[in-house]
């Protein structure tokens, strides 16, 4: 029993660690992509948006296979290590972060950044002091949604990272393994844990966005 509980804590800690690493990895790119998409008006805009949204609708195992192909070409071996789980998770959560952050950037009056420029401030300063502070709720909201998605990642992870206990066996992989092995009670305990984590993330997102709607 205690051994099992220890295993569950390992799986939970691992899941949180992999999801957190994935989020940290995609955060700068996600914000940049969201901001770029929000401002970009040139040709190919809808093509770029479609490409970015693809991981939302493609089967996760398909993403896994693509990543497997890409990663097997790199010289350093990161496949079937926790790093590959991070990459798979990052790829799957990226579009959610971009979506959340992007709608926040879209909601900002573009004239604010314009005025800030005429006040003698360069684009970078304006981004840090005006655009990002005004979008932060949406960015954090997108981040939490992406994090919730990261916690539940299964399909892409199992293809590129396998299900190695203590290294890549996250909550969802552990649940699957318990079901296969006929340990339904253990599986259900992990389902409860996942549920709690996902609930916390989504609930905080809702609270955050609700508050931002009520006015800043």
């Amino acid at each position: 029993m205690t051994h099992q509980v220890a295993n569950e804590i390992v799986a939970l800690a691992l899941t949180l660690r992999i999801a957190a690493c994935a989020i940290v990895l995609i955060l700068p790119f996600g914000i940049l992509a969201a901001y770029g998409l929000s401002r970009y008006r040139g040709p190919g805009k809808s093509l770029i948006e479609t490409l970015l949204a693809l991981p939302l609708v493609l089967p996760p195992v398909a993403i896994g296979l693509i990543l497997l192909e890409l990663l097997s070409r790199s010289t350093s071996s990161i496949l079937f290590t926790w790093k590959s789980a991070v990459i798979a998770t990052a790829a799957m959560s990226f579009p959610l972060l971009v979506r959340g952050a992007r709608s926040a950037f879209d909601a900002i009056d573009p004239r604010l950044a314009d005025v800030a420029r005429t006040l003698g401030r360069g684009p970078l300063y304006v981004f840090w002091r005006v655009t990002l502070p005004l979008a932060w709720r949406g960015v954090v909201g997108g981040l939490l949604t992406a994090f919730a998605r990261a916690l539940g990642e299964f399909g892409a992870t199992i293809v590129v990272a396998g299900s190695i206990p203590g290294e890549t066996r996250t909550l969802s992989l552990a649940i699957f393994q318990h079901i296969e092995a006929g340990r339904d009670a253990a599986a259900m305990r992990l389902v409860g844990l996942s549920l709690a984590c996902a609930f916390l993330c989504l609930w905080s997102t809702e609270r955050l966005l609700l508050r931002s709607k009520r006015g800043r």
Binding site: E69, L71, S72, L79, F80, I158, G162, S163
Partner: peptide
């Protein structure tokens, strides 16, 4: 040991060259 879902998954893991 890298545990896989089934024996064919073990083979594809090797086909990727990682193991």
């Amino acid at each position: 040991i890298v545990p896989m879902l089934d024996v064919r998954a073990a083979l594809s893991a090797m086909a990727s060259g990682a193991i």
